[in-house]
């Protein structure tokens, strides 16, 4: 009897637990996966995709990411214990290399024949370094002192590169004098445009550059970060148009299929911790802003953009895989690893 009573008491407690569990089951809102983004581009968020043991594989700023020909995700950080961290798509560590890129900032991948090459823009070395995918240095682009554009090497502070089909290289001097430097494959300076100033063809933080291959006629898309603008130039440096993204401090354009993806490091009035991701469609209209407010156009003009949820801190780059999932690398975000956004 005593035992039976004890069991009954346990049953009550157990039922209490069950009752609690049942109420949780009956209230699915408690388990709502966060879904960010708008219209056709919505995502679930995996914060732990690329998390590693920070003592063995530390990061400072996670600046940029690309996907190589093997489908691996390549991360560039300015931590000189492992400047390049390569993951498989599941977020498992594949390899690390690089100890001599203290200002590792821009990362561009170019396939030449059947080989992958990386272009690393280092804003402390004031150089762009071309390497093989496993870290062997192939070429280095230093400050073009002979051009007369710079008085000292320190004035050249490259942030990003874009490489054309013919091998020509475009370097954005985004933290320096705001020039766009056009080199031949052999490294000969062919042209210079942009530069600091207030005209539409000038820049105030020419932070990122990409080749827009969505149309037959390829063009250059260059972010003018502090003015919240994306500017289009011909491959020979002629200004074509400006795409206004008010309130969005965009880092670099990433072209995938018919869309342009842009990590947006700050928003609103540019305060810290206000970042999100911007996605433009083939007509260069903002259609989705994961982490940001709903895009809205009035009389053809995008209304001021700002952060809606405190998820991202300072997104600095977006990598898009073949399944259209996103990998978001962040600057100055507590030495955190990239965030994966799964397309739904």
């Amino acid at each position: 009897m005593v035992r039976r009573n004890f069991i009954k008491q346990i049953s009550v407690i157990g039922l209490g637990g069950f009752s609690c569990g049942a109420s949780l089951l009956a209230n699915p809102s408690l388990y709502k996966d966060l879904i960010i983004g708008h219209n056709t581009h919505r995502y679930k968020v995996d914060m732990s995709w690329g998390a590693l043991d920070s003592k063995s594989y530390p990061v400072n700023d996670c600046h940029e990411m690309v996907q190589d020909s093997k489908g691996r995700i390549v991360l560039l950080t300015n931590h000189t214990q492992n400047n390049v961290i390569i993951y498989d798509k599941q977020g498992q560590l594949d390899e690390v290399w690089g100890t001599k890129f203290p200002g590792a900032h821009g990362l561009t991948l170019k396939v030449e024949g059947d080989k992958d090459f990386l272009y690393i823009s280092d804003n402390e070395r004031h150089e762009v370094i071309k390497t093989t995918i496993d870290g062997k240095i192939v070429n280095t682009f230093t400050c073009p002192i002979g051009s007369g554009l710079y008085e000292s090497k320190d004035q050249f502070v490259p942030t990003e590169t874009a490489v054309a089909d013919n091998g020509d290289i475009y370097i954005a001097d985004g933290y320096g004098e705001q020039h766009i430097l056009h080199y031949s494959f052999e490294g000969r300076l062919l042209n210079v445009f942009g530069g600091r100033g207030d005209d539409e063809l000038n820049f105030d933080n020419a932070h990122g550059i990409a080749i827009d291959n969505r149309n037959q006629q390829h063009t250059l898309l260059i972010t003018d970060r502090m003015t919240n603008k994306l500017k289009r130039f011909s491959m020979s440096g002629d200004y074509i148009e400006t795409i206004n993204l008010p309130g969005a401090y965009i880092c670099r354009p990433v072209i995938h299929d018919q869309y342009v993806y842009l990590a947006t490091i700050w928003s609103g009035n540019g305060a810290n911790g206000t970042g999100f991701v911007s996605i433009l469609n083939k007509d260069n209209k903002l259609i989705s802003s994961p982490g940001g407010c709903e895009p809205m156009y009035k009389e053809g003009q995008l209304q001021h953009m700002y952060q809606a949820i405190k998820l991202f801190t300072h997104p600095h780059d977006v990598c898009v895989d073949e399944d259209e999932n996103l990998y978001v690398a962040q600057w100055n975000s507590g030495k955190s690893y990239p965030i994966k956004l799964i397309r739904i």
């Binding site: 637990g17 388990y31 679930k44 995709w49 998390a51 206000t274 700002y306 809606a308 949820i309």
Partner: peptide
């Protein structure tokens, strides 16, 4: 029920998604 709660709380485990109640609005 406990397992479900674990999923809810985790949000930061491998392969698990962030939940709405883990996020603050701007």
């Amino acid at each position: 029920a406990c397992n479900m709660q674990k999923i809810k709380i985790a949000g930061n485990g491998v392969g698990e998604f962030v939940q709405e109640d883990e996020v603050k609005l701007a």
